[in-house]
Design a protein around this nucleic acid. Structure first.
Length: 553
RNA sequence: UGCCCGAUAGUAUAAAGGUAGUACAACGGUUUUUGGUACCGUUUGUCUAGGUUCGAAUCCUGGUCGGGCAACCA
C-alpha cells in the first residue's frame, strides 16, 4: 500500500537529489533535546527520518542535542532511546552534540579570525534593546568593533571561566538591519557555569542551538536535515554558518509538526502536568508521550500506521484523535485475544441449571486470526455475572439484550430466557432469573432458536477480580493551546475512572504484561505496570465502537 | 500593519495545466454467536477577486484568513 501512496514533498526532494546524483547515500538524523520524554509528535519525526532511510537506503543517526546543561538529564536520554527502539527503529550512530564541543569551539574561533564574530559585554536587556523589532532594524552593539585579537582573547577567557554567567556572550557579526531577526548578530556562545550530563564541568560556555545544529549536521554529513516549521527562519542562519565555515553543506527542510486534538504537545506543558501532579508521570496512560501510549496499550505498529496516515506537509494541522484510535483498533482487532470481563456486574441465576454443576466451555481466542488464535477453556455454572447495562426492565425499541421475557445468547454458551428479576428497596435490580435451553450449547446448537443479541458473562464461582482503569481524553476542548486562559483550565476531570472490582475470566490471572486483550463487547485492555499477582490491574486502551450507544445519544 | 510560511469535504492528505481522488469522521444498509470486525452505499471540498490559457486546485497579480519571527531555549 505504501508503494501506491503518492510522495510527500520531502520524498520528492530526496528522489530528485538521488536521481540527479547530488547524493549517493541518504543520511538523516533524529535530534531530540534530552529535556523531556518523547511524544506522539516526535513519533511523527522519528517515523519520517528513519522511514526515509529505510525506504531509500542510507542511515539515520540519533543525536542528542544537548547544548543546554540546565535542562538536560541522562534520564531523558535513556527514555528517549527506549522509546525509539520500542517504536521499532534503530539508529546507525548514537551521537551527542556535546561530542562536538571542541570542534564547535574551533569553529567559533575560526569565525572570530575571519572577523565574523565578536564578544559582547552588553547585558541581556541592552542586547535585546539593540536588537530592534520585526518591523524596526536593530542597532550595532558598541562592542561590535572590537579587534580580532581582543575577541580571541576574550573568548578564550570566557572558555577559561574568567567571567560570571551572563557577563558576556559571543555573537556572530552579520547584519543588525536584517529583516530576519535571527541574522541580527545572533548569540552563538553563552556562559553557563553548569554541570553537563556528559561533559561534566569541562565547559562553562555552551553553544546556542543555531551554532550547534547545522554544524553537527555537517560534521555527520547529514544530507537532509528535517525539522519543523518554526525553524524556517533559522535556515538562512544555518546556511550562513555552513558557508562561512566552509563545511559540508547539509540542507534543512521543514514540515508541519503534529497537533492532536484534545491534548497538548509541548514538552513544557507536559512537564507541567507531571510536576504539578495532574498526571501520575510521563508515562501516565493519558499522556500523549510514547511511554504513556505504551502503558495505555498502544502498539508500535499502530503508532507507525498513524504517522503514515497523517501525511507530511507544510500546513498547520490538528489531527483528530479518532484517527489514532482507529489505528490502534485496527491493529488490535487483528491481534488481541478475546476474553470476557464484566465491569459493572449484576447477578444472573439460571434456575434450571443444576446448582453445583460446573461445565467447561471452549472459546476461540480471536475470530480475526487465521488460526482463530487457538482456544481457551471457560468455566460455566448456574450463577453468572453479567453487565448491568445488558438488562433493561422496560426494553427500548430495537433492544436485543436481556429484558423480562427476552432471550439472548450467552457468548460461547447457551441461550437463556429471562423469567424474572429482583429489585432492592431503592428499585435497583439485584438479580436476574433465567432458564437456559440445554440444546442451544454453542457449537452444537440444535434448538433452532435464533436470538438477536449475544452478551458476555463470567461464572461467579470461578471469576477473578481485577481493577480496571478507564481513560478518556485529557482535555475537554479540541485545542487547549488555542483556548483563552491557562491550558490547565481545560483538564477533563473525568479523564480517568477506576473500577475497583470487576470480574474477569480465570484465564486472565496469567495475563501477560505485554499482551493486549479484547474484553468482548467492551474494548481493548492491557495489564498495567501497577499489577501484582494478587491485584490485577488493566488499562483500557480504547473502547470498541458502539453503534448502540451512538444511536441512543 | 515589515518579512517569511501556508490555505482542497468536519479532519487530514493526493491530483506536477486536462474526469477533484483516498483515508478517518458522520449517516444509511448487508453479514455476524462481539450492536465488534468485514463489506456496500450516501452526504460534504479547491479562501476570494481579477489575469494568462482551448482548458487553472495547479501559473501570475491583488486581497482575505491562519501560523511564525523581537529566549544568554531547542
Amino acid at each position: 500500500m505504501s508503494e501506491e501512496r503518492s510522495l510527500n514533498f520531502i520524498e520528492e526532494i530526496i528522489e530528485n537529489d538521488l536521481n540527479s546524483g547530488k547524493y549517493e547515500t541518504l543520511i538523516t538524523r533524529f535530534p531530540p533535546e534530552p529535556n523531556g520524554y518523547l511524544h506522539i509528535g516526535h513519533a511523527k519525526a522519528i517515523c519520517l527520518n528513519f522511514g526515509l532511510t529505510k525506504k531509500y537506503g542510507g542511515y539515520t543517526n540519533l543525536r542528542f542535542d544537548d547544548t543546554n546543561p540546565v535542562t538536560e538529564k541522562t534520564e531523558y536520554v535513556d527514555s528517549q532511546q527506549a522509546d525509539i527502539k520500542w517504536l521499532g527503529f534503530q539508529w546507525k550512530n548514537e551521537l551527542y552534540t556535546s561530542d562536538y564541543f571542541d570542534t564547535l569551539y574551533d569553529f567559533a574561533v575560526t569565525l572570530i579570525e575571519k572577523g565574523l564574530a565578536y564578544v559582547d559585554h552588553g547585558s541581556a536587556e541592552e542586547i535585546a534593546e539593540l536588537k530592534g523589532t520585526p518591523t524596526e532594524p536593530g542597532k550595532d552593539s558598541p562592542y561590535r568593533l572590537r579587534s580580532i585579537q581582543e575577541n580571541l582573547d576574550l573568548f578564550s577567557q570566557m572558555k577559561n571561566g574568567d567571567f560570571e554567567d551572563g557577563a558576556c556572550i559571543l555573537r556572530a557579526k552579520i547584519d543588525m538591519a536584517s529583516v530576519n531577526m535571527l541574522m541580527r548578530d545572533p548569540i552563538i556562545y553563552r556562559i553557563k557555569h553548569a554541570e553537563h550530563h556528559r561533559t561534566g564541568n569541562k565547559w562553562c560556555i555552551y553553544p546556542m542551538y543555531d551554532f550547534a545544529h547545522g554544524q553537527s549536521d555537517s560534521i555527520e554529513t547529514i544530507t537532509h536535515s528535517i525539522c519543523t516549521l518554526e525553524y524556517v527562519a533559522h535556515r538562512e542562519l544555518y546556511d550562513w554558518f555552513i558557508e562561512k565555515l566552509e563545511i559540508f553543506p547539509s540542507k534543512q527542510y521543514e514540515f508541519a509538526r503534529l497537533n492532536l486534538s484534545y491534548t497538548v504537545m509541548s514538552k513544557r506543558k507536559l512537564l507541567q502536568l507531571v510536576n504539578e501532579g495532574i498526571v501520575s508521570g510521563w508515562d501516565d496512560p493519558r499522556m500523549p508521550t510514547i511511554s504513556g501510549l505504551r502503558r495505555r496499550g498502544y502498539t508500535p505498529e499502530s503508532i507507525r500506521e498513524f504517522c503514515e496516515r497523517i501525511g507530511i506537509a507544510k500546513r498547520e494541522n490538528l489531527i483528530e484523535l479518532s484517527l489514532l484510535e482507529f489505528c490502534v483498533r485496527e491493529h488490535l482487532n487483528k491481534t488481541a485475544t478475546r476474553v470476557m470481563a464484566v465491569l459493572d456486574p449484576i447477578k444472573l441465576v439460571i434456575t434450571n441449571y443444576p446448582e453445583g454443576k460446573d461445565e467447561i466451555l471452549i472459546g476461540e481466542n480471536n475470530p480475526e486470526a487465521e488460526d482463530k488464535g487457538g482456544t481457551r477453556e471457560i468455566p460455566f455454572s448456574n450463577e453468572l455475572w453479567i453487565e448491568r447495562e445488558d438488562f433493561m426492565e422496560e426494553p427500548a425499541k430495537k433492544w436485543f439484550r436481556l429484558a423480562p421475557g427476552a432471550t439472548v445468547r450467552l457468548k460461547h454458551a447457551y441461550i437463556v430466557k429471562c423469567e424474572d428479576f429482583k429489585k432492592d428497596a431503592d428499585g435497583q435490580v439485584t438479580e436476574i432469573y433465567c432458564t437456559y435451553i440445554p440444546e442451544s450449547k454453542s457449537g452444537e446448537d440444535t434448538s433452532g432458536i435464533n436470538v438477536k443479541g449475544t452478551i458476555h458473562w463470567v461464572s461467579s464461582k470461578h471469576a477473578k477480580s481485577a481493577e480496571i482503569r478507564t481513560y478518556d481524553r485529557l482535555f475537554t476542548v479540541e485545542s487547549p493551546d488555542s483556548e483563552e486562559g491557562d491550558f490547565k483550565d481545560y483538564i477533563n476531570a473525568e479523564s480517568m475512572n477506576v473500577i475497583e472490582k470487576a470480574y474477569i475470566e480465570p484465564y486472565l490471572v496469567n495475563a501477560d504484561k505485554d499482551s493486549r486483550y479484547q474484553f468482548i463487547r467492551k474494548g481493548y485492555y492491557c495489564v498495567d505496570k501497577d499489577a501484582t499477582p494478587d491485584h490485577l490491574v488493566f488499562n483500557r486502551t480504547v473502547s470498541l465502537k458502539d453503534a448502540w450507544a451512538k444511536s441512543n445519544k
